[in-house]
């Protein structure tokens, strides 16, 4: 049975229509323009971010997580414009982020690491313990909470990364390749967790694994060369390629639609 988390903020009127809103967004990665004029509007729910290697997904995630500043255009996170003088702490308190490479202190236990991140995210001190315990339980690591990080498998480390991302009950959750290293059973549990989280937060999942998107995302953003070549529902993605359900390229209809859209974008120069 799916449960929904009820928090005070659930009943508060939001001052913004979209958790993420970008207009002609430009983000540079070094000297390269990795995100080039992207338009994006994401509200509550689980959104998939798809695209080939070098499409600009990770650069976009880094901009949305406030690691890097936009190089042009407009970006609004949780109703706060990301201007040079923006108070980033306001956004960061309500942000959860799992980067592509999740580092950790090897001598910390699982609980200590998640509590440490709760403290970094300014969770009130009396709530840190319960919040960490709940986050650890949600990722299915309650029985390993006292184990040191260095003793965990790659999949478990990834789940700890997920726990730290959700420990502050974020309104905007950014997950970069979250299912790397998870076994099939863990991925099924993870998708259930995603759906649960997406019921009252904006969750953006950047991944190469199209089946994860198909299983848990309500809509999809497809990027190519720093631009969006498709943004819409999963059904819309399938409809964008009428031959997706009967084609031979790829193993699933979503994969076939994804491939067809990319090829089409490249052929027409869209996103290039």
């Amino acid at each position: 049975m799916r449960t929904r988390t009820i928090r005070p903020t659930t009943f508060e009127p939001t001052a913004f229509a979209f958790a993420v809103r970008a207009e002609s967004l430009v983000v540079n990665a070094g000297r390269r323009r990795a995100v080039d004029g992207l338009d994006l509007a994401l509200g509550t729910g689980v959104h998939g971010l798809l695209g080939p290697n070098g499409a600009g997904k990770t650069t976009l995630m880094r901009a949305l997580s406030t690691v890097s500043r936009p190089g042009g255009g407009a970006l609004e996170l949780l109703g706060v414009p990301m201007s040079p003088d923006a108070d980033l702490a306001v956004v960061r308190r309500r942000l959860g982020y799992l980067p592509q490479h999740f580092g950790f202190h090897p001598r910390f236990t699982v609980r200590e690491l998640v509590e440490y991140f709760a403290w970094l995210k300014e969770v009130p001190s009396q709530r840190i313990g319960p919040a960490a315990q709940r986050a650890i339980e949600r990722v299915g690591l309650a029985d390993r909470a006292g184990d040191k990080m260095k003793t965990l498998s790659g999949g478990m480390v990834r789940r700890v990364g997920m726990a730290q991302a959700i420990v502050n009950d974020p309104d905007l959750l950014l997950l970069d390749e979250p299912t790397t290293g998870l076994d099939p059973e863990q991925r099924v549990s993870f998708r259930e967790l995603l759906r649960d989280l997406g019921s009252d937060a904006c969750v953006l999942v950047s991944t190469h694994l199209v089946e994860d998107v198909a299983a848990s995302c309500e809509d999809v953003v497809l990027m190519e060369s720093g631009r969006s070549v498709f943004a819409g529902s999963l059904d819309g993605l399938l409809a964008a390629d009428p031959g997706a359900s009967s084609g031979t390229v790829g193993d699933s209809a979503v994969e076939r639609a994804y491939t067809a859209l990319l090829r089409s974008a490249r052929a027409t120069g869209e996103g290039a």
Partner: peptide, 22 residues
């Protein structure tokens, strides 16, 4: 040098607590 060696710098920089307090 622990934080950078552990690859935690990027993630930690996205949290609300000011760097000095961290």
């Amino acid at each position: 040098g622990r934080e950078r060696r552990a690859g935690l710098e990027e993630l930690v920089s996205t949290t609300a607590r000011p760097l000095r307090a961290q």
